[in-house]
Design a protein around this nucleic acid. Structure first.
Lengths: 93, 93
DNA sequence: ATGTATGCTACTAATAGTGTAGCATCAAGA
DNA sequence: TCTTGATGCTACACTATTAGTAGCATACAT
């Protein structure tokens, strides 16, 4: 599973997630990703661009059409995680 | 997104993925995860157990019901990735 | 008792990530 | 033209994480 190898790198999922609403500049993206180091951010963006999931233009970084599709799937995963988080809280009490 | 923080650790997605078919022992899991170091495997399994996504019994490690739900979502992600991989090949040629 | 499988720990070397500083480029304003 | 500010990004020293290997303790079967 190539995709999982990529998503299973620190910050990759987060970066895709943060771009879900609108395009962001390198620096905006950094801030939203808890000030991830620019070294790592740049490395990840480079990978994501090579994989045709993210692109870059005058407005900053954003999803490609494929990246958008992927982000949609992540959104349903996010939805599920709400329920999961609740059930975890139940366990802890 | 707590879930993404967890899934975005090396091997976590892979471990969940490898358990999709049947329960596996610690050592079987290691082999399927390209001989990931036992240190990391154990750390991940501990987290996944705390998060109620994975459990352990006499037959080895396996998904909880929540873990199974998550793995189902990953399966659709996997399905999408087939198409994505193909479109990448097209680009490279 | 001996062999085999289990889950797991210990330890060192290698790799990846952090945090900070700062550079080169560009565009707008004075 | 000379700042000023924002951009993407690199450099580098430090720290944290992971890899890779060895091996232990337990259990169960022969």
């Amino acid at each position: 599973m190539v995709l999982f190898d990529i998503l299973g790198q620190r910050w990759t999922l987060r970066i895709l997630w943060e771009l879900r609403l609108k395009r962001l500049t390198f620096r905006e993206l950094r801030v939203r990703c808890e000030n991830v180091s620019p070294t790592v951010l740049n490395t990840r963006l480079k990978s994501l661009r090579e994989l045709n999931l993210v692109d870059h233009d005058a407005d900053g970084y954003g999803h490609t059409s494929l990246g958008h599709e992927l982000a949609t799937q992540l959104a349903t995963l996010d939805g599920w995680s709400q329920k999961w988080a609740k059930s975890l809280d139940m366990l802890d009490q």
